[in-house]
Amino acid sequence: MAINIKAPDLPRTLKEMVEILNANQSGYVSTLDFLKKGILSPAAGIARLKKKGVMFETIFQTITDGSGRIHTGIACYKIVGVAIL
């Protein structure tokens, strides 16, 4: 089930996060993915979206970045619903 969040009144950074999450609903978006796209504080943005009523499923994974470095405990997010926005 696709959940398309429309959030015209959000600050620019949160709008960008919503766009990234909307575009990747079939999978999870990692903290590293957000950082690659210029979101400097993904955890804070997720917390702000949760306060606005967006519901997430969060898992933690070990991810190897583009330079081959292994990162453990990386948060990965997937939208599962919206209460209010």
Rank of each mutant, 00 (worst) to 15 (best):
R12Q: 11
L40D: 11
V29R: 08
N22Q: 08
A2M: 10
I59T: 13
A2L: 10
M17I: 12
L10R: 11
I5A: 09
L14K: 00
T13K: 07
F56V: 11
A47K: 02
G53C: 00
K52C: 03
N24P: 00
G27F: 07
K37F: 02
I70A: 14
P11M: 03
T64G: 06
F34G: 13
L85H: 06
I39A: 14
I79W: 12
I3Y: 02
L32C: 04
F60V: 02
D65R: 09
I20L: 14
N4H: 08
K6F: 00
T72L: 09
N4Q: 05
C76V: 00
D65E: 08
D65Q: 07
N4E: 00
S41G: 05
N24C: 00
G53E: 02
L40T: 15
I5N: 07
L49G: 11
A83L: 15
G38F: 13
K51P: 05
A7C: 05
I46L: 08
F34L: 14
A43S: 14
V82E: 15
T64F: 06
D65V: 03
V29Q: 09
I5P: 06
Q25K: 11
A2P: 13
L85Y: 11
V80Y: 14
L49W: 06
Q61W: 04
G38P: 14
N22Y: 01
A47W: 02
G38Y: 13
L21F: 12
E16H: 11
A83R: 15
L14A: 03
M17W: 00
T72R: 15
P8Q: 13
H71R: 08
L49I: 01
K51L: 04
D65H: 08
R12S: 09
Q61P: 01
I59C: 11
G53H: 00
N22R: 08
K37S: 06
G73I: 12
G68A: 10
K15M: 08
A75G: 14
R48E: 07
M17L: 05
L21R: 10
L40E: 10
L49A: 07
T62S: 15
P42D: 02
Q61H: 06
K78V: 01
